[in-house]
């Protein structure tokens, strides 16, 4: 592997970037908080208006900058606040997920989930699930830009 990943295996904690649509998934995250559910702090959320705002370039940028996993979450199909956004996302990110996997990224590192604003429990579960899977996979060196230094 050409990119050096020098995380200390014992103390390593994965970084997971979750892009959540404002109306369902981000609100689902709020619901998880309001219900005082708990999930690993490895997950950090970036709010986007709609999952259809998700450019594949944002996903790759996260991997370049050292994310070990990326999650995109949107409203369930049929529930999109903008009516059709997530239908487009389903096609776009299905194609992109398979392309990313084709170049050797493990499938678990990039996921798409539908989480409604009432599904605080699902939000917490998905975040925990993703974190566990990424922990099992270990640090991601693929597509990582070695020049980008993290602060721990």
């Amino acid at each position: 592997m050409s990119t050096a990943v020098n995380e200390n295996a014992a103390g390593w904690e994965p970084l997971i970037v979750a892009f959540c649509c404002n109306w369902c998934s981000y609100a689902g995250g709020d619901m998880a908080g309001t219900s005082r559910m708990s999930y690993p702090a490895n997950v950090k959320v970036i709010r986007v208006p709609c999952s259809s705002r998700m450019s594949p370039m944002f996903i790759l940028r996260a991997f370049q900058r050292g994310a070990d996993g990326v999650l995109v979450a949107g409203c369930h199909p049929g529930d999109c606040h903008y009516s059709t956004g997530n239908y487009h996302v389903r096609r776009r990110l299905s194609a992109f997920k398979r392309l990313v996997e084709f170049t050797g990224v493990e499938p678990d590192r990039f996921e798409v989930r539908w989480i409604s604003s009432s599904e605080g429990d699902k939000f917490a579960d998905e975040m925990a699930d993703m974190t566990n899977k990424i922990k099992a996979l270990g640090p991601n060196g693929k597509m990582r830009d070695a020049r980008w230094q993290n602060i721990t």
Binding site: L15, P49, R53, F58, R61, R65, A67, I151
Partner: peptide, 21 residues
Amino acid sequence: NLKGFSNEQILAEVDAICLQR
């Protein structure tokens, strides 16, 4: 581009979030 959630803004957020594990 989308005002308020521009490409530049989202990339800046990604960069900033990834700066720290």
